[in-house]
């Protein structure tokens, strides 16, 4: 089997999340492939625009909703720019799913705190919907999400849905100066909002994803709240090409982010050399 050859997918919908972030809703051209495609929350895929190349991001939709696959991306490089020019009905390529996943089985029966910043919400959204779709198997759910400005918040409609859900506490914040006159959410950086919300650490798993600076300043807050390193879970990204543990660029020490990751506990992260 040619491990580098993608399957063809069709763009079924395009959602403009922010001025530079889009979500694509994809469906395999071959219904059999769609049916057979199984993945777990936290895994990623390689997306192709033929003629431009491939790029890597997590699957942003939940495995509990298998009729579509969604990915959210920021227009930054050659391929993401090309992706942003595609229309509904256009064909792309997809290889995957790759990498490990969030330990959802171990999270059952526990409280879950989701903390995300900016586009870091994409992998978290996948596991949020996965947990919410199986909500009776989990305890209290908190979602803390921040972006630079109101315009930079992704999944705006879903944030509203989560706010209305029973047993789910959703707090949305923007950086100071990023608020609009009619903004009724929080204003402040994610670490200080986490401190303000102060989720209890007992029997709780924290899932955190966002820019390195946010992670750096949120970790001490979580530690102060009593979270154990094993109960803090994050997902890393690195430049990738193959996604198969061969091309040699995503490693951090002897750990290949594409195969041994992208999901790591804070305990595991601390054992990695400082090169990410």
């Amino acid at each position: 089997m040619n491990i580098y050859k993608p399957e063809l997918v069709e763009i079924k919908d395009i959602i403009e999340e922010t001025p530079d972030i889009r979500t694509l809703r994809l469906q395999f051209k071959n219904p059999e492939t769609q049916k057979a495609f199984a993945f777990k929350a936290g895994q990623f895929a390689e997306y192709s625009v033929f003629g431009e190349g491939e790029c890597t991001f997590c699957i942003a939709s939940s495995p509990t909703r298998p009729e579509f696959l969604e990915c959210s991306f920021k227009m930054a490089g050659k391929v993401t720019k090309a992706m942003s020019k595609l229309n509904i009905g256009d064909t792309m390529g997809l290889r995957g799913p790759y990498g490990n996943h969030f330990p959802i089985e171990d999270m059952k029966g526990k409280n879950i705190v989701f903390i995300a910043g900016g586009i870091g919400m994409a992998p978290v959204r996948c596991i949020i919907w996965n947990v919410l779709d199986l909500k009776d198997q989990f305890k209290d759910i908190s979602i803390i999400y921040g972006a630079r400005t109101v315009a930079d918040l992704v999944y705006k409609n879903e944030l509203e849905d989560w706010k209305k859900m029973a047993g789910v506490k959703t707090v949305v914040t923007v950086d100071p100066g990023g608020e609009t006159p009619d903004w009724n959410g929080e204003v402040g950086f994610v670490p200080s909002i986490v401190e303000k919300v102060s989720p209890k650490a007992e029997n709780t798993v924290a899932i955190i994803c966002g820019p390195p600076i946010m992670i750096k300043f949120t970790m001490p807050v979580l530690k102060k709240l009593g979270f154990k390193d094993d109960d803090i879970i994050t997902t890393l990204e690195n430049r990738m090409k193959c996604g198969l543990g061969k091309c040699g660029r995503c490693n951090i020490g002897s750990v290949y982010v594409c195969k041994d990751g992208p999901v790591f506990t804070y305990t595991q992260m601390q054992q990695l050399p400082d090169e990410f």
Binding site: F50, G51, G53, K241, K246, C247, G248
Partner: peptide, 15 residues
């Protein structure tokens, strides 16, 4: 054995 993966077009519609 490190490698890169790139697309090379022969024209607008193939590569």
């Amino acid at each position: 054995h490190c490698f890169d993966i790139v697309d090379e077009n022969c024209d607008l519609n193939c590569g």
